[in-house]
Computed example of a mutant assay.
Amino acid sequence: MLDQVIKKFLPNVSKVSDVFYESILETLKMFAIAGSISFLLGLFFGIVLLVCKPGGILENKWIYNLLDKIINVLRSIPFIIMIAALIPLTRLVVGTAIGTTGAIFPLVVGITPFFSRQIESALSGVDPGLVESGKAMGMSAFGLIIHVYLKESIPAIVRATTITSVNLIGLSAIVGVVGGGGIGNFAIMYGYQRSQVDATYVSVIALLIIVSMIELLGKRVLRNTKYY
């Protein structure tokens, strides 16, 4: 019954259903790998920005200004242009600039600066009084980061991660324009180049479902932290 419905309303997609399902797996693979790496890097750089800024617990204007400028520059470059600019470096790092493997590196470079800012903003929302109390109790800088900044910022970090994850799904679709694989590549190859409208629509629906699942997961995590 389901096969008949698909053939009726999605005739072109039904002919390449295996390619479509593979594109979904490729998108999830890019999201999982690039997302995990970007989460760790973004968390690290966000913390560095926070503690090294003027007035921070490890104030270092040189490190702060350098990292701040690098992040601003990377965030100002349109992602589609960044992909092209990173091709030589991508080939050097992962051995190829096409396919799912070639898409992961530019995705990490593209989303990490955004997530770093999100983390910096999330940590900056911590009550300064709590930081001062931690200092008064003799906490080290590392202790303040772990037990004050990160612990008190869990809800904000979850929200930042959810927002960044949604943005990452969008970027993973963009890499399809340059043969990066995934749902975006499927939409370009079959929906745009072959003028198969049903392929375009089913790609949009698949992306909407993935984004909705991410947002639902983010809300559930917030509820489980009892901060929502």
Rank of each mutant, 00 (worst) to 15 (best):
P11W: 04
S14W: 11
V19P: 00
F20L: 13
S23W: 12
E26Q: 14
K29Q: 13
A32L: 15
G35I: 09
G35H: 06
S36H: 05
S38Y: 07
L43Q: 08
L50E: 06
P54K: 14
E59H: 06
N60F: 02
K61Y: 08
W62F: 13
N65D: 11
D68W: 12
I70V: 15
I70P: 03
I80Q: 08
L92V: 07
T96S: 14
I98Y: 12
G99K: 05
T101A: 09
V109Q: 02
G110W: 13
S116E: 12
R117V: 08
G125T: 04
D127A: 06
P128Q: 11
S133M: 14
A136P: 12
M139N: 03
M139G: 01
S140P: 12
K151P: 05
S165E: 00
V166C: 06
N167K: 07
L168Q: 00
S172D: 09
S172L: 09
I174P: 05
V178E: 04
G179Q: 12
G181V: 05
A187I: 15
Y192P: 14
Y192G: 08
S195P: 00
Y201S: 02
Y201A: 07
V202H: 01
S203H: 11
L207N: 06
I209D: 08
V211R: 02
E215S: 06
E215L: 01
R220L: 15
